[in-house]
Computed example of a mutant assay.
Amino acid sequence: MAATVTDSGSVRIITEVIPATDSPAAQQASSSRPTAPATSSFQVHSFRRAQPKALGAIHIVTGIIHFCCGIILTVVEHEIPSITVASGVLFWLGLLLLVTGSLLVESGKRENILLVKICCIFSAGIILSTLVATIVHAKTITASLPGCEHNWPHQLREERCFNIDRKTLSNGLNLVFVIFCLLEFCTAVAALTFGYGAIKQHNYRRVVL
């Protein structure tokens, strides 16, 4: 028995094709309750309205950017790392983005409600991680350059501490990361909202012809 799901406005239509060789009793039994594949297909179809492939592509691209920038900043600031580099936020957030993005892209290809549930879990992790990352970047912006903190009134500071361009560049990079975090947060919220709605959509009205 084959089943297809079609959305027409606010009406959800599930069409089931029953072979002619089936007995009337089997037809009656099959029409009395929805089959698991049909329900799962309907739920995944509902989740795909969020365009999971596009959302996953955003996560993958931003994850790669996080990784690349993390490597560059780690090499540049290997002697006295900033808060952003020392926390490793660019690496663990980048890895989480790559994994979540790959799952979202895969969920757009397969009829698997379990994959949608996993995407929801990882999207929730992205939401929490971006909030933590935003705090880390904001802390880096408001803090002084590493090794240039004022510990006592007449402390001798290195010449690089008076380089305004270095601090401006650091603030600019962290501000860009904050914008990325906002984009990732909105993307994860969209995926989680549609995924949760798809999982909860169990009930629908059946019309048997």
Rank of each mutant, 00 (worst) to 15 (best):
F42S: 07
K53S: 15
A143W: 01
A133V: 00
L98N: 05
N163P: 06
Q155A: 13
V176L: 15
G63V: 04
I199D: 07
K53E: 15
P37Q: 11
F47H: 01
A124N: 04
A124Q: 04
V61E: 07
G172V: 09
T140Y: 03
G147R: 13
I113T: 06
C181I: 07
H154T: 15
T21A: 14
V116T: 04
P24N: 04
L90N: 00
V136Y: 00
A143R: 03
S102V: 12
A188V: 01
D7W: 11
N163R: 10
A138V: 10
P24K: 02
I71C: 14
L209H: 02
A25S: 05
I83H: 00
T35R: 15
I127C: 06
T15D: 00
T74W: 04
T187C: 07
V44M: 00
C119M: 04
F122M: 13
G101H: 08
I72K: 01
V99I: 09
V116E: 04
E149G: 11
S107I: 06
D7K: 12
C68V: 14
F122P: 03
L209T: 02
W152F: 15
V208D: 03
K53M: 14
L128P: 10
T142I: 11
T100F: 04
C148Y: 09
E106G: 08
E79S: 10
P19Y: 11
L103S: 02
A57L: 13
F91P: 01
T142N: 11
V116N: 03
P24F: 03
L97T: 12
C120A: 10
I13S: 00
H66G: 08
I18T: 07
P146W: 02
V44R: 00
S123R: 08
F91R: 00
I179T: 15
C120I: 13
H59N: 15
H154P: 06
M1R: 10
D165T: 03
T74H: 06
T140N: 07
R157F: 09
R160T: 10
S46V: 06
I58R: 02
L156G: 09
L209W: 01
I141Q: 03
T140Q: 06
F194Y: 03
F122A: 09
I118W: 09
T39A: 08
A57G: 12
S30T: 07
E106A: 13
S102M: 14
I71T: 13
F42I: 06
D22F: 14
A50K: 02
A25P: 01
C161L: 08
